[in-house]
Design a protein around this nucleic acid. Structure first.
Lengths: 208, 208
DNA sequence: CGAACGTTTGATCACGATCAAAATAGGTGG
DNA sequence: CCACCTATTTTGATCGTGATCAAACGTTCG
């Protein structure tokens, strides 16, 4: 939400275009990446080459926290984005300086952790429509509306990978939600939640 | 793995019996819980009363880290267990003291985070048998073998909740793995991985 | 011993993966 | 600006898997 914390140097945000890799699983954690604009995705590959999207990160989130020596997942730009790199050393100094009274840094740790928990919670739901609904609710909390519409810049293939569903299922699910008048999608990459209450119900697996 | 770190006071571990609650979602984070023996589970309830197990925690893991002001999930004993409570204040002091040179504390943060990521990774797999296989592999890394056997003290209902599957499916999956000679279960609550390589393949969704 | 819970097995059926193909959008160069 | 190419989305059809219901079996309690 807020991008103003003690990391906030007058650094110019670095741009990255969709698909670009910010860092790779296994690389040393020498930078913390703070998202300023756009969406990033954490991905993990199994040995067999299967790709899974573990989490999405939004403006204000910090990724690649030096909790271990090496990054445990890769991060790529899911959309065009702007980010800032902080050196790990500075991050740890901040941590030492502030963690006694101020909990800002710990919050950024929490935000990262929450992103992963959130996926588990969503994947735990039964029914593809319930998962998709839950995802849209989470998305809407991260993406501020412009003119009542929210940007849905993520390709449906990414959503599918995140939700452990096939792209076809995502497409059909969105169609269904439109037909039910629960969401509106005037353009492919814009959506609005018309009926939040019913969306919540669907996310709980209740069709009425 | 190691239970010896700077938290290691000469405290006597506190016992808790299966099903007991260590702390509840929403309570203030005034203690960090370190598991010494047994297995704990993090659970989350939706408003509708649906229960999901978000993660299991094993000896050496610390839970309830004060990353936010209030606990974001509840923790219960999944089996009988022994744990130690550390006051949050002490934990934060340790953090401040050690995080510049030593990374022990950050590792405990990482372990908690990893537990949640792990569930996402497992749930992302296609096929109930793949998820179950992946889960058993993870379990085997946490539970040391005694006489070649590992304790499977978790009720299958818990495994089902963790894997977002029905108890029947878990039961059938275990049966199938036994029939394939991939695992052995001489008793209901003991198992051994007879054929690790094939289990890995199954976890990848490969049936040969 | 009986009650309560967890596990096992069977049968049915809806959901979602998969394959295949058309339609739409996006991007590039002529 | 249009033609072309590629990637993404959409739609249709089939089929296997796993949820669900129901009931028997085993275990662990009081």
């Amino acid at each position: 939400m807020l991008t103003h914390n003690q990391f906030d140097q007058q650094t110019i945000g670095m741009p990255a275009s969709a698909g670009e890799t910010l860092f790779l699983e296994g690389e040393p954690c020498d930078h913390v990446f703070e998202i300023r604009k756009g969406v990033a995705r954490a991905v993990s590959m199994t040995h067999e080459g299967d790709r899974q999207i573990l989490a999405f990160f939004f403006p204000g989130d910090s990724i690649g926290l030096p909790l271990a020596q090496y990054h445990r997942y890769s991060v790529e730009a899911a959309t065009d984005l702007v980010h800032i790199r902080h050196s790990t050393r500075r991050w740890q100094e901040s941590l030492a300086r502030t963690c006694q009274d101020d909990t800002t840094i710990l919050k950024s740790v929490w935000r990262e952790e929450k992103a992963f928990i959130e996926r588990g919670l969503i994947l735990g739901r039964v029914g593809a429509l319930a998962r998709l609904s839950a995802f849209l609710i989470v998305l809407s909390r991260h993406l501020p509306p412009v003119h009542g519409l929210r940007a849905l810049e993520l390709p449906q293939t990414d959503i599918a990978s995140y939700l452990a569903a096939s792209p076809e299922t995502i497409c059909r699910g969105l169609k269904r939600l439109r037909e039910m008048q629960i969401i509106a999608m005037p353009r492919r990459d814009r959506f609005a939640i018309e009926h939040p209450a019913r969306l919540e119900l669907l996310a709980e697996g209740i069709f009425e």
